[in-house]
C-alpha cells in the first residue's frame, strides 16, 4: 500500500499546471508515449512493435479494421494485462508495470466498449463515487459528499443530458444513456487523459453530433487530452487532431485526418477487411 501512496501524492503537483493552457500545444512533450509495444495471446500476435505518441491537450484518434488490436493496445496502456515487450510512459513515468488503480489515480482513465456502470446505484451516486481518489486520504473515506461535489455531479449530468434521470437506477438506463453516464463519471474523476473505447457505438445516430460536441468541449474547456478508438469515420475525422491507424496488430499509418483519408494503405486495409 505504501508504494501507490507515494506516487499518488505526487499527482496533484503534476495537475497544478493549468490544464487549459496546455491545449493545442502540439509541439510540447507527448503526454503518453508508446514505444515498441508487443502483446501476444497464446500464439496470436495482437500488437506488434507499436509506437505512438499522444500529444498533450489534443484529441488523438485510433482507428483500424475489426481485430486490428486497438482495444488490446488500450488495455495495455491502462494496465489490464502485461505487455510482452516495449515501454509505455505517462507524463514521463513508466506505467507498463503498474496496476489499473495506480494508473487511474495518476489521471489516466478509460471507458469501456461494453459500458460499465454501477447498476444498482442511481446516477447521482454513480457520479459521486467517481470523484477523484488520487487525493483521497484515509479520513476522506469517512467523509460525506460535500455540496460542491453534489453540484458538480449534477452539472456534469446536465452536461451529458441525463439530469432528469439522475435518480434512476443506473442499471435501468438504456445502453446509450449508460454510455453517456459512463462518460460523465469519467469527467467527474478529473482525468488528465481520457481513453474512450468506441464512444459512439450503440448511441442513437441523432445524438452523435451532441456527443461529438461534448467530447470536444471536454477537450477544450476542461483541458482533457483524449485518445479515442472509433469506427465511425465521420466522427473521428471531425474530431481528431492526429490519427493512428492499426491493421493486423501493426501500426499502418499516422497523420492528420486529411492525410489518413487520402492514404492508400488505410483505404486498402479497410476495403480488405470487408
Amino acid at each position: 500500500m505504501n508504494a501507490p501512496d507515494a506516487r499518488t501524492q505526487e499527482a496533484p503537483a503534476v495537475r497544478a499546471e493549468p490544464p487549459t493552457a496546455a491545449g493545442r500545444q502540439a509541439d510540447s512533450e507527448p503526454i503518453i508515449t508508446v514505444r515498441g509495444v508487443t502483446k501476444t495471446f497464446g500464439g496470436v500476435v495482437a500488437n506488434h512493435n507499436i509506437s505512438l505518441d499522444v500529444a498533450r491537450g489534443q484529441i488523438t484518434g485510433l482507428i483500424g479494421p475489426n481485430g486490428s488490436g486497438k482495444t488490446t493496445l488500450f488495455n495495455s496502456i491502462v494496465g489490464y494485462h502485461p505487455i510482452d515487450a516495449g515501454s509505455i510512459t505517462f507524463e514521463g513515468r513508466e506505467i507498463s508495470r503498474m496496476r489499473v488503480q495506480q494508473i487511474a489515480r495518476l489521471g489516466l482513465l478509460r471507458t469501456f466498449q461494453q459500458t460499465r456502470i454501477y447498476g444498482k446505484m442511481n446516477c447521482v451516486d454513480n457520479m459521486l463515487i467517481s470523484i477523484p481518489h488520487r487525493k483521497a486520504t484515509v479520513l476522506d473515506m469517512f467523509a460525506r459528499h460535500s455540496r460542491e461535489q453534489l453540484e458538480r455531479a449534477e452539472r456534469l449530468l446536465h452536461f451529458v443530458g441525463l439530469y432528469e434521470k439522475r435518480f434512476l437506477r443506473a442499471g435501468d438506463l438504456s445502453f446509450g444513456q449508460q454510455k453517456l453516464l459512463e462518460f460523465a463519471m469519467a469527467l467527474m474523476n478529473e482525468p488528465t487523459v481520457l481513453l474512450l473505447d468506441e464512444p459512439t457505438a450503440g448511441i442513437n445516430p441523432t445524438l452523435i453530433n451532441g456527443l461529438i460536441d461534448r467530447l470536444k468541449r471536454a477537450n477544450t474547456e476542461l483541458g482533457i487530452t483524449l485518445l479515442i478508438i472509433e469506427h465511425n469515420m465521420r466522427v473521428i475525422m471531425n474530431m481528431a487532431d492526429t490519427i493512428y491507424c492499426l491493421a493486423h496488430g501493426e501500426l499502418l499509418a499516422s497523420g492528420t485526418p486529411e492525410e489518413i483519408q487520402n492514404d492508400q494503405r488505410v483505404i486498402d486495409a479497410y476495403l480488405g477487411a470487408h
Binding site: 494496465g79 489490464y80 494485462h81 502485461p82 496496476r99 489499473v100
Partner: peptide, 11 residues
Amino acid sequence: IRQIQQARVRQ
C-alpha cells in the same frame, strides 16, 4: 500461489 501467479499477469 495462484494469486501470486495471477498478480504477475496483473489479474
